[in-house]
């Protein structure tokens, strides 16, 4: 065993939650820092996946199946969400000819 996370000798629920929190933070900062709408969308997906990981970990360590079934629904909704969001991005690109967020400010003022 590699003693990398020395505070947690056996990697239990806490370490899974830590990974989920790290992934969520990465996605969050990606949404804040990136300009390209498509990359922002990928970061949103990353945040969604981090929450899924937390749900599966809770489900396993509590000995229930509800979290896993919930993840099923989340995956379905995420697939639909990606399809609709990318269609919106394509429609936006047709109108404005850009996907950079700071040029999409036509609702301002």
């Amino acid at each position: 065993m590699i003693p990398l996370l020395a505070a947690v000798p056996v990697y239990g629920l806490q370490s899974y939650l830590l990974v989920a929190a790290l992934l969520f933070a990465i996605g969050f900062f990606g949404v804040l820092l990136r300009k390209n709408t498509l990359v922002i969308y990928m970061c949103l997906e990353l945040m969604l996946l981090a929450s899924t990981l937390a749900l599966v970990a809770f489900s396993k360590f509590n000995g229930t199946l509800d979290g896993n079934v919930f993840v099923f629904f989340i995956l379905t909704i995420a697939a639909a969400e990606v399809a609709v969001g990318l269609a919106i991005i394509v429609a936006l690109f047709r109108k404005r000819h850009t996907v950079q967020v700071e040029e999409l400010n036509h609702l301002k003022n």
């Binding site: 489900s59 896993n68 993840v71 099923f72 995956l75």
Partner: peptide
Amino acid sequence: LDAALLAFVLLLVY
């Protein structure tokens, strides 16, 4: 995490 089915679905869908 013993959720092999979810892993499969994740790979398929995502």
